[in-house]
Structures are given as structure tokens and as C-alpha cells.
């Protein structure tokens, strides 16, 4: 069953998928949003914060920063392993699971030195080379005078169902491919169809006395017509069977390819867990 690559950049991917059921694609799509793990700052210990932002706001801004997690997926403990950990163990570095550390530590120590200054993500020092902010120039907090910010942030792997900061995908879409339109003759005769073609020259044309779509007409163009012009009476879109476009865009913390793979793996893990449970119950 062929999968055709339409577009690929490091952070986005667009596939034309034929022959796979919609349910499978939708499962992968949803897994990309809520099951694929990635690194994000989980809690912050603030030693000093003189800035205009409250500690909570500061912690929230830090959590929103995408961290590179391609390597972290292999080297850090899975999200579920850390559910039992408490803060005290983390601070002393005792928090591990099967030899893998749970948390990565990031330090931020900045002072304004008498003038207006914005603290950027490039000022963050990471204990692990492979985990650092994806973008260097994200402003975190403004400082003035002799204000100072000093904090330690702990990042761990997590899943999007827990908090949106662990969502690697920003866009995950499965959409059908528009093939043609069908026109109901009883509601819209040839004259009515000609009127349609005249009203919207960009999308429609008349061919052998029937209304058809032009090349490059998208579904949203047809749906606009159906919803606002013809009000769903005459035209209906016809889709290509079992053919879908799968679009994925990430926030930069994982590559699009990796996100796709990890999502598929997450589904397999879930299915295996279900199978184990069923076998346990059945005995």
C-alpha cells in the first residue's frame, strides 16, 4: 500500500496515503497530539525572582519553551516511570528508573546590571548537552535596575494528555482528497448549474452541459459554495476512495519523521498493554 511523500521539511511532513482505513490514520493523528513523548520543563525552583512576572507566570513561560528531545527519548526514563517521584529525590539527583535519569536540570541566572535587559533562552545553561531550547532568541523575562532572576528548572519526558506543553505536534490533520462533485438534477437543472459556474469562475466550469470542478479547486472552496451560496441543496463533494492527506507539523522539539514513528510506537504499546490485560483477566 503506497505512501507518497508530498512535502518534507525537518519540522513538517505531508503524505498522500492510499489504502489505509481512516481509523488507523486518525489513531496516529491523535497519538501525535497526546501520546508521543517529548521533553518540557516540569517544575521550577525559584531562588530569586525580582522581576515583574510572578513565579507562576515565569514557570509557565519556561514550560512553553520547546526543548530538543530527539536524543532524550532514548536516554531518559519514560513518562510513566516518574509518576511516583517526589521533588526531594529530584533535587539530590536520586531520581532514576532502570539506570536512566528522570529529570534534566536547566539553570538560569541573570541580572540586569542597572539597565533594561531581556533574558533570552540563550542564557539558560543545561546540564545535558542534548537538551537545550530549540530557539535561542525566545524572550523569557524583562529586567531593570538591579533586578535578578535565579532559578533551577527540571525537565522531564511527558505526554500531551497530561499537559499541552508535552505536545510535540502543533498540526496533525487527516483530510480526504476531493475528486469531483455530484449535482442533484432534480434540485439544480442545467440552467441552475450554468448560474453556479458563472457565479464562481475560479472553482467551477461547464463541461458537456454539466457542472464540474476546475483543477486546483479545494474542498474549502466547494464547501463555501455549499454552505453559503447553494445552501446544501444541489451540490455534494465526491471524495477519492481510501485516499487521504496526512499533515503533521511539530514545534521543533522533535522532527516530524520522529514524531510519526513515536506515535505509531505509542499505539503499539497501548495495544500490547490491552492485550496483556485481557489475557490476565481471561486467565
Amino acid at each position: 500500500m503506497p505512501i507518497q511523500m508530498l512535502e518534507e521539511t525537518p519540522i513538517s511532513i505531508k503524505l498522500l496515503v492510499k489504502g489505509y482505513p481512516l481509523a488507523v490514520l486518525n489513531a496516529i493523528r491523535r497519538a501525535a497530539l497526546e501520546l508521543c513523548p517529548k521533553m518540557a520543563i516540569d517544575f521550577v525552583i525559584v531562588e530569586r525572582n525580582d522581576s515583574t512576572l510572578f513565579n507562576e507566570v515565569l514557570a509557565h513561560r519556561l514550560a512553553m519553551i520547546p526543548l530538543t528531545s530527539d536524543e532524550a527519548l532514548d536516554h531518559y526514563a519514560p513518562p510513566e516511570a516518574c509518576a511516583e517521584c517526589d521533588c526531594r529525590k529530584v533535587e539530590t539527583g536520586e531520581c532514576t528508573y532502570e539506570g536512566k535519569p528522570c529529570y534534566a536540570t536547566l539553570y538560569l541566572d541573570a541580572s540586569a546590571d542597572g539597565k533594561y535587559k531581556i533574558v533570552y533562552t540563550k542564557d539558560i545553561i543545561s546540564s545535558d548537552e542534548s537538551i537545550k531550547p530549540v530557539y535561542d532568541n525566545i524572550p523569557i523575562v524583562p529586567l531593570i535596575g538591579n533586578q535578578k532572576v535565579k532559578l533551577t528548572a527540571y525537565a522531564r519526558l511527558g505526554r500531551g494528555r497530561e499537559h499541552a506543553k508535552w505536545m510535540p505536534a502543533t498540526v496533525a490533520v487527516v483530510k480526504p482528497v476531493l475528486k469531483d462533485i455530484s449535482v442533484k438534477e432534480t434540485l439544480c437543472n442545467e440552467e441552475c448549474q450554468r448560474e453556479c459556474a458563472e457565479k464562481c469562475k475560479e472553482a467551477f466550469t461547464m463541461k458537456d452541459g454539466k457542472l464540474t470542478i476546475k483543477d486546483g479547486t479545494t474542498l474549502s472552496m466547494v464547501m463555501y459554495c455549499i454552505e453559503y451560496v447553494c445552501e446544501g441543496k444541489g451540490i455534494r463533494p465526491v471524495f477519492e476512495e481510501d485516499t487521504y492527506i496526512f499533515e503533521l507539523e511539530t514545534d521543533g522539539s522533535l522532527s516530524a519523521r520522529r514524531t510519526l514513528k513515536e506515535s505509531a510506537r505509542a499505539i503499539v504499546q497501548k495495544l500490547e498493554a490491552l492485550k496483556r490485560k485481557l489475557e490476565e483477566k481471561a486467565g
Partner: peptide, 19 residues
Amino acid sequence: MIPIRCYTCGKPLIQYYDE
């Protein structure tokens, strides 16, 4: 300070703000 990400889709935007 302006938000780091788009409210709706979550794309990091603030790194473009200065430019």
C-alpha cells in the same frame, strides 16, 4: 511580554517577534 506560542495551535511564535 507577549505569549511564546500561538494560543490556538501551539506553534512557537515569539522568536519572530523582534524581526
